[in-house]
Design a protein around this nucleic acid. Structure first.
Lengths: 342, 342
DNA sequence: TAGCGTTGAGAGATCGGTCTCACAATGAGT
DNA sequence: ACTCATTGTGAGACCGATCTCTCAACGCTA
């Protein structure tokens, strides 16, 4: 039951009665090859089921036809969608996709990137787990590894990036709540290590300050991006004496958690609490009423990132390019209007 | 801005003033190395940031430290979950995960497997897109490539597999509906090419026949596993003259579609229609009432598959092993009791 | 002191391709 | 007839790491 070793150029060359060099020329279509010899080689290759060994090719030519993708969490629908899009785009240019989830863990991210580097992948698409420590990324960039940052952009890193206007999206959402008379607006966000959390929080704070509202730390809860943590955070926020009248959640998993928690506490949307979530999701049109969200053009991120990466792989040496998509506030039914004395 | 080539053993050896062979011995800890020389090598390696080149290692030793995973669709929460579990398990044994989604397309699956083979991956975990044509898989197995089938098992393929009792789970669900007095029970399923669809349909039919109920082709709709297609299928089923009183959907994406469609038609669950879905999902506990489902132990599939695969990679040559998990019917509120004259 | 085992380390083969270079054969131009 | 360009082909270097083989030095025993 030993693993049968596959046929090599040497086998093909022998079968076609030519040298390895000639076989390679025929198979790859370069240099001068006699048409008769070429035919013999091709026939032999087909007959023996020759496939070529990417590993050997990679060793000679530098780099496996692989693109690495390091998302924060592959189970998060956002990243799953992006992964799918990257996969499709990469396949279009004969690249394979290697996905290694950092699970929002900086140590793990470092190890994974080291790994990808050792594998000599052609390039990487990364959603960095932390805004603080990115020396490992900086080194990769410095060494010349093509890297594109998505979703979370580190400004001091000289490489391409694709993301949405997180600050603007969050600001628009909170301003919408303010415009509807809300003043006690709660926020559930990720650990501030994560860039998007930081930016969306900035949008929240900027909106409040632009309208002369105080920023109350008791209205801000930090949660990791899992349903259970979001439930806990929501319950914490809404069991305070002076209850918030509105809630803004920074990603769809948290919005899901908030929905579940509010239901279990017995608070109705939008009667008791208004809700806006960042990132649209299936569930949002499911509930009654449907949830108002800040939608991002998820489907564009992957393809654009791959395109930029391929440009770099092909040797483009322009200064870093940064793509920013605008978000769109989709008003559904989860925000109520509060009338207050002027 | 040329890509700096990374440091090699040669560099390290030169820096430590020894030969490549000695450097390799020191780095990998085999053979005889003088303690003083070893120290110099290690120091030099650390100083130069030596990392080793997996590609070269793979060429020499046969096989990249990579496990290939070919799911039907990475965006499907089921596969995303399994992918995550595989990733974690694989990382535990120093393997990377390469995900290539077949998108339920047989041609693409063939191309992807060919690709993985050419990359010399150590083994593959596959959810075959089609029950019919699997010569490509058979050849891989014959050649000795370690392969584990998950979710969808092809009985005639001599390799390990991990799946759930699809027939039994579906049968239990339909019997539950029958026990509650339902007789016109509709089914929305995948293309019958897919093994799970076939098995779950078998469970549906077996349940009906065991209770002397006719199998009515008009109650069976085929849909692909996307929300939109499931919506269409549901609408088709429920716009027939004699409307079904119950619906069984074979995966969570379809259940989601069915929910949306029924709501848009204005049919209430469970008053107008009873519903059971295969595979539990977030949404199921979200709706009012919550949805009754056939739950599968999703979290066990990935780890078990990786374990079996690693055994094979390590050279285990026992006959194929087949793991089957039992499903569990979770009764929530989406099934109503119909009383009928005896 | 001859003989032998142990320890240390270098030279070079090897994995499977790709590609440069040298060389031979052919035909065209002067 | 002689130079030259064009074609076709093979020998061998190379990518980076691993590993076998060979050999030298040392110390110990008889």
């Amino acid at each position: 039951m030993a693993r049968t070793k596959s046929t090599t150029v040497k086998d093909v060359a022998a079968a076609a009665n030519v040298s390895r060099a000639t076989a390679a020329r025929a198979l790859n279509g370069y240099g001068y090859v006699g048409s008769e010899a070429a035919e013999r080689v091709l026939e032999a290759a087909a007959r023996l089921g020759y496939r070529g060994n990417r590993v050997a090719q990679a060793l000679r030519q530098g780099g496996l036809p692989i693109i690495g993708f390091v998302p924060g969490d592959i189970q998060n629908p956002f990243f799953a969608r992006v992964a799918h899009d990257i996969d499709v785009a990469a396949r279009g240019s004969k690249h394979n996709l290697l996905i290694a989830s950092s699970e929002e863990n900086l140590e793990q991210e470092r190890a994974l990137l080291d790994n990808l580097r050792a594998l000599n992948v052609r390039g990487m698409i990364v959603a960095p787990a932390s805004a603080n420590d990115n020396l490992h990324l900086a080194r990769l960039v410095r060494e010349g590894t093509p890297i594109v940052l998505i979703d979370r952009v580190l400004d001091d890193l000289p490489c391409d990036s694709v993301a949405v206007d997180n600050e603007g999206g969050a600001r628009e959402a909170v301003e919408h709540l303010i415009a509807n008379g809300h003043r006690r607006i709660a926020l559930i966000q990720d650990d501030a290590r994560i860039v998007t959390a930081r930016d969306r929080q900035a949008g929240y704070i900027n909106a409040l300050q632009a309208h002369g509202l105080p920023v109350d730390r008791r209205l801000i809860a930090v949660s990791s991006s899992t349903v259970q943590h979001a439930i806990d955070a929501t319950i914490r926020l809404f069991s305070q004496p002076e209850r918030p009248t509105a809630l803004f959640t920074v990603d769809s998993v948290m919005t899901t958690g908030a929905l579940l928690a509010l239901r279990s506490i017995g608070l109705a949307i939008p009667r008791d609490v208004s809700l806006i979530g960042f990132d649209d999701f299936d569930l949002a049109t499911f509930t009654d009423p449907q949830i108002t969200v800040v939608a991002q053009p998820v489907g564009k991120i992957g393809p654009v990132a791959v395109k930029m990466l391929l440009d770099r792989i092909r040797g483009l040496s322009e200064p870093p390019r940064h793509v920013r998509f605008q978000t769109r506030l989709i008003c559904r039914g989860s925000v109520s209007r509060i009338f207050r004395p002027a």
